[in-house]
Every structure is written in C-alpha cells, then in structure tokens.
Nucleic acid binder design. Structure first.
Length: 334
DNA sequence: AAAATCCGCAACCGCGGGAGA
DNA sequence: ATCTCCCGCGGTTGCGGATTT
C-alpha cells in the first residue's frame, strides 16, 4: 500500500492529529479558506498531506459538524435513504445536516456488525423495525427526488401530498420496469396504472418464484407482488415468497427476516440484507427449519408497525391496490 | 486485578471522475 | 484526444477505550 501521490514527501506525518495541528488547520482554513487542499499543509505549516488535511477538516474540524448520537429520526432517514441509494454515504450525508459520510458509514457498519452478532436483538421502541439492504443502488433522478422527500421527511413527520406524489412516481417507475417483472397477464403490455398504498412500500415479496395454493392468492391483482394475502396469513405452513430481488432497475428491494423473535412485545418485523444477498434471511430460514415459516414466525413477521399488528382486516385495506406488504416504523403512517 | 475480546471511530488507501493544460 | 493533477468517495485498517471473562 502506497501513499497518496501528494504525500510522497518524506516528512509527511500520519496518524492521529494533535490539538496543535488541529489549531493550525482551523486557523488557516478560517483565514484563507480551502481552495486547493494540496497547498494547505505547506501554507498552514503542517507536515501532513493535503488529503489528510481535507479529511480532518471535513470529518472533524468543520464548524457546522454535528456530533453525538444519531437520533431515531436520523436513523430512520438513513435507513430509508440507504434503501434508495445504497452505500452512497456522501449522498445520504447530504440529507443529514451536520453529519459526515464517514460518520454515517461508521454508524451503519457498526450496526451491521451488531445485527450479525445479535440477530435477535429487540427493536427500540422509537425506531423502525428495519435494518438494511445492500441492493444495487439506483442512480436515477427519481431516486434523488425520493431521497429528497425522505430527507424532508426528517423535519415533517407526515408526507405531504406532493411528497407522496414524488415518492409514488419514483416507486411507480421502479415497479414498471421491466414489464416482465410485473408478470402475469400484464407482461408485455403497457403497465397497468399503479395504485399505491398511502406510504412508500419498503418490502416486496416476489411470488413469481413460488406457487402458493390458488386459494391463497388474489386473482384480482394484476401483478405478482402481493399474492401473499390475509388468507395466506392463516395458512400454517405457507412458504413465504422471496423478496423482490433488485426490483427491476430502479428500486432496491429490501429483504426481510425475523430479526426480533425475542422481542418482548412480539413486534418483530425487521429487515435484513437484500438485493440478491439475502444472507440473513437464509440464516433465519435455517433457524426456522429449512425454508418453511411456521405460524408463530409469521405472527412475528407480519407486523404493521411496532404498535399495531398487521391483521387480515388492515392488510385488506392495504391490499386495495397495494403492491407490497408494508413494514413501517411507528411514525410512518398518519 | 489482569488478560482477552469487543466495539466505536478516526484516519488511511485506492480508485474514479472532472477539470484544465 | 490525451495526459496530469486534484478532489471526492467508498472501503478498509488500526488505535484505544469499554466490556467481558
């Protein structure tokens, strides 16, 4: 491993920054700004490379930096944004004022480690029961718009009609591609008008790859995503369909698992790594007995949010035009 | 109390892309 | 059109404090 091209000088220092170095850098930046980072070390009297100075400033010394623990709202926003844009930390950070990409990345990575080590950890009462996805990120303008809406959602707990429209447009676009993914009679035809539930869907089961008993499906639905219905919930040995993998091009699908099986409240819907990986789901399936989800597991899985169980009746409400099962945090619905 | 292990976080590294020569 | 330089990003490493054994 070499050093930066700008760090070839022998006297470049590495490692932790001393308070004196911090002071020098702050003094220089506040006085002169940082037009060219490669010039900063020399002009500031620092034996560091420009890159190191930039990193120190951006991640630590910047006056508008916000330190301390992430709030529940920030956590939810990170989750939502990550579901849309993937590991684009800088992009996510741009929606969290005062937070750095590095901080968010570290937070995320620690969280993943925690999830791996303790898959059955209980959810906090204030946080959404979602974990993460590493699906291929989408890079469309629509995703950016959706991300912007989600960012705004941090300040406004309820989506406005306009915001919902933006999200819906993004999701509709995602759902519309490719047509064959929508399957059924609609394949090859113009995509049917997409009517979405009142909130952005976060989980989608792909029932194209399984063949549940016909009595458990909804023949009226023109698409394959939500054939896992209220009736299916009553089936003791129903095979959960896999979650939609990559959901076409636009949207990163989120996988699902029983992350909170020991949650004392019995509210345990959680998400795991998705987008083709599904490693945690696989692990969960093994724990549950070879791909078969028993009734109790389904009870854990099918949660509407942390406080409200997803019953056949409210699922039916969702299902009127819904394309997915929704798993939300306690504040996600009005 | 000491050693081992875990975990959070700051910093480093390589790479890709944009701008300018 | 090509090359070089620099910036910004995501992935990774390693230090040091906290926790566990």
């Amino acid at each position: 491993m070499g050093h930066h091209s700008c760090c070839n000088q022998q006297k470049v220092k590495r490692g932790l920054w001393s308070p004196e170095e911090d002071e020098k850098l702050i003094r220089y930046i506040t006085t002169h700004g940082y037009g060219c980072w490669s010039e900063v070390p020399e002009k500031a009297g620092l034996q560091r490379c420009g890159k190191s100075c930039r990193l120190r400033w951006i991640n630590y010394l910047r006056p508008d930096i916000r330190r301390g623990r992430f709030t529940a709202e920030e956590e939810k926003l990170i989750i939502s944004l990550h579901a849309i844009v993937g590991n684009r930390w800088a992009h996510i950070a741009s929606h969290l004022p005062g937070r750095t990409d590095n901080e968010i990345k570290n937070y995320w990575n620690s969280w993943i480690k925690k999830k791996i080590r303790k898959p059955a950890v209980a959810n906090t009462p204030t946080s959404s029961s979602v974990t993460m996805t590493t699906s291929p990120p989408c890079s469309t303008a629509a995703s950016d718009a959706a991300a912007a809406v989600l960012g705004h959602h941090l300040q406004t707990p309820v989506f406005s009609a306009a915001e919902q429209h933006q999200l819906d447009a993004f999701i509709s676009q995602s759902l519309a591609l490719p047509p064959t993914k929508l399957g059924g009679a609609a394949a090859g035809q113009d995509s049917p008008p997409v009517t979405l539930p009142p909130h952005c869907p976060f989980f989608m089961f792909d029932t194209t790859s399984v063949s549940p008993p016909s009595s458990l499906t909804s023949p009226a639905l023109p698409h394959p995503f939500l054939t896992f219905t209220a009736a299916a919930m009553d089936a003791p040995s129903y095979h959960l369909p896999p979650l939609v993998d990559g959901i076409g091009i636009g949207m990163s699908a989120m996988d699902c698992s029983l992350g909170g099986e020991s949650d004392n409240n019995g509210h345990a819907a959680s998400m795991a790594n998705g987008g083709g990986g599904g490693w945690e789901k696989q692990e969960e399936e093994e724990q549950l007995g070879q791909e078969q989800w028993d009734d109790e597991s389904a009870q854990h899985l099918l949660m509407w949010d942390d406080d409200q169980e997803l019953t056949p009746s409210n699922l039916e409400a969702m299902e009127s035009g819904a394309h997915s099962l929704l798993f939300m945090g306690p504040n996600d619905h009005a």
